[in-house]
Write a protein that binds this DNA or RNA. Structure first.
Lengths: 143, 143
DNA sequence: CTAGAAGTTCAAGTCAACTTGAAGTCAAGG
DNA sequence: CCTTGACTTCAAGTTGACTTGAACTTCTAG
C-alpha cells in the first residue's frame, strides 16, 4: 500500500502519516524508490492511535503504550491505571452531560438559581477544579 | 476579592484569570486603583469554565454558551446537542477503558491475537476514525 | 517616607499536533 | 522522451490555551 492509499483508507492526510512515522508511532515496510510502502496492519495501528487520542492520551503516551507494531509494550498495571483515569474522566463527562441536558430542559428562569443545576455543577466542578486533568480537546472539523 | 485570592480559591494562576477576563469569560467588578476586584460569584463561573473544558469545549465555545455572569446564553436545543455529543464521546471512552482493562487482564500472548481485544478495538476505533472528534487533551500536571 | 511585595500591561514565548510551502525526485502515460 | 502528478525532505507556520518577561505602578508595613 502506498501512502495515498493508507491515507484514503484511514481518512488521515498523508502528512499525518509521515508525521506519525517520524514520531515512531507507525512503521513503513520499506521504500519503493523513495516512496513508503505500508503493510495493511498499519490501518489497525492507526485505529489504535485514533482510539488512544480519543481517550485523551498524547502521541508520546500512545507511543510508550504500544510499539509501532501495535503490541502493548507497557506493563499491565500501567494499563489498568490508565483505565482508572479514564473512568474518572467518564464520570465527570457524564456529570457535564447531565448538567447540559438539565439546563436544556429545566424551566427555571436562571440556571444559577436552579437547585438541580447547582448540585450537578458543584459535583462536576469539584472534580474539574481539583484534579484538573483529562480535558477533551476542541474538536476538529469533521472530514 | 483581589486577584490573588481568586487565584488561591480557584486554584488557577492569576495570569489565567487575567487571560479569561481578556477573553470575556469572566468579569471583574471593577478596579481599586489599577487592581481588579472580583465578586465571589466569579468562583462559580470559573468552576463552570473548568467543567466546560473538562467536557471538551473550547474557551470560545464556553464563552458562547454562558455569559460572563454564568447564565446560559444559548438556546436549549444547542445545549442538548452538546450533551449528545458528549454522550457519544463517553461511549468511546468507555470502550477504550474496557479495552485497556482487558489488555491489562487478558492472558493472551499478544493482544492483536485476542479476539476480545480485537472486538473492542474494532468497535471503538470505528467511532474514533470515522467521527474524529471529542478527543481529550493531554492532561497537564496536577497542581 | 520608603522598601518591597504584589499588582498592572503588552509583547513574545511555549507546547502538542499537525499543516503548509519550497524545492527536489521519480514513475507512468501519451 | 518528456510532461505531469504523486511522492520526497526539511523548515517554518498554525492554533488554542496559556505562561513568561520586561518595564512600570501601587498598596501596605515599618
Amino acid at each position: 500500500m502506498d501512502i495515498a492509499e493508507a491515507a484514503k483508507r484511514s481518512g488521515l492526510p498523508a502528512s499525518t502519516l509521515r508525521y506519525y512515522e517520524a514520531k515512531g508511532l507507525i512503521a513503513s515496510t520499506g521504500r519503493q524508490g523513495l516512496r513508503r510502502r505500508f503493510a495493511p496492519g498499519v490501518l489497525d495501528q492507526l485505529a489504535l492511535i485514533a482510539l488512544g487520542q480519543a481517550a485523551g492520551f498524547s502521541l508520546d503516551e500512545i507511543g510508550s503504550m504500544f510499539s509501532p507494531s501495535g503490541k502493548p509494550s507497557i506493563d499491565r498495571a500501567k494499563l489498568a491505571a490508565k483505565a482508572d483515569e479514564l473512568d474518572a474522566t467518564i464520570k465527570r463527562l457524564k456529570a457535564m452531560s447531565d448538567g447540559l441536558r438539565h439546563a436544556a430542559a429545566c424551566p427555571a428562569r436562571s440556571h444559577a438559581e436552579c437547585p438541580t443545576f447547582r448540585r450537578l455543577l458543584k459535583a462536576a466542578a469539584a472534580g474539574a477544579l481539583d484534579r484538573r486533568q483529562g480535558r477533551i480537546a476542541p474538536r476538529r472539523a469533521m472530514r
